[in-house]
Simulated assay, not measured.
Amino acid sequence: MATQQRRERERAQRETLIVNAAREMAEADGWPSVTIRKLAERIEYSQPVLYSHFAGRGAIIDAVALQGIAELTAVFKAARTAAEPGDELAALAQAYLDFATANPALFEAIFTLAEGLTFGVDAPEVLKAAFAELYAVFAPLAGDRDPDAFTEVGWAAIHGLAVLNRGGRLRPDLLEQRLSILLERFARP
């Protein structure tokens, strides 16, 4: 039994090593630089060892995305719980924008590159936890509108700002004004 537990622990450690190395490489040089060959060289294991843990590059990106979603959920919760009553939406929105700016490769993995993650009803628990944090902020503002739909639209609006800001598609001098308009629109009953 002790041998089996050691093997399982070592396997989990290798998976963590692979995911962390992929994330570091992506943050340093972008996702195109993350290949199975380069990952194997970086962590000093053979490519077959990586394939014994993950079906391919996409599965590694999905693992990075799940790790990132867990971190984003913690950021949401910290922003929401630290905010003054009535300021939860502003705190959450700013935390989302800050996370996108501070973690560009992770944000890309979560929202652009992840292939095997389902959102919605069949989502993994970590995704449901992230949505629950958004829901905790948006649902009280929904009024007579469906709180799930209202939360999804609110999330989409903040996410849209984050993506367009990151891509340099919006004027930087209007960032605060755009956020203020969004917050005002969603805070209306």
Results as ranks from 00 to 15, higher is better:
residue 2 A to H: 12
residue 5 Q to E: 10
residue 7 R to C: 04
residue 10 E to L: 11
residue 15 E to A: 05
residue 18 I to K: 08
residue 19 V to N: 01
residue 29 D to L: 01
residue 29 D to H: 13
residue 32 P to G: 06
residue 32 P to F: 15
residue 34 V to D: 10
residue 35 T to D: 12
residue 40 A to K: 02
residue 42 R to M: 07
residue 42 R to A: 13
residue 46 S to H: 06
residue 47 Q to T: 15
residue 47 Q to L: 02
residue 49 V to C: 06
residue 52 S to Q: 12
residue 58 G to H: 05
residue 64 V to E: 00
residue 64 V to K: 06
residue 64 V to H: 09
residue 66 L to S: 02
residue 75 V to H: 04
residue 83 A to F: 15
residue 84 E to S: 12
residue 84 E to F: 14
residue 86 G to K: 08
residue 86 G to P: 03
residue 90 A to Y: 12
residue 92 L to K: 04
residue 94 Q to N: 12
residue 94 Q to K: 11
residue 95 A to F: 14
residue 98 D to Y: 12
residue 99 F to G: 05
residue 104 P to N: 08
residue 104 P to R: 05
residue 104 P to F: 08
residue 105 A to V: 13
residue 109 A to P: 08
residue 110 I to K: 14
residue 113 L to C: 08
residue 115 E to T: 06
residue 115 E to D: 01
residue 116 G to K: 05
residue 117 L to D: 03
residue 121 V to F: 12
residue 129 A to P: 00
residue 131 F to A: 12
residue 132 A to Q: 13
residue 133 E to V: 14
residue 135 Y to A: 12
residue 137 V to D: 05
residue 137 V to T: 04
residue 140 P to W: 04
residue 141 L to A: 09
residue 143 G to M: 01
residue 143 G to E: 07
residue 145 R to M: 11
residue 146 D to Q: 13
residue 153 V to G: 05
residue 156 A to P: 06
residue 163 V to A: 13
residue 166 R to E: 13
residue 173 D to R: 04
residue 174 L to C: 00
residue 175 L to D: 03
residue 176 E to H: 04
residue 179 L to E: 01
residue 179 L to T: 02
residue 186 F to H: 10
residue 186 F to Q: 07
residue 189 P to K: 13
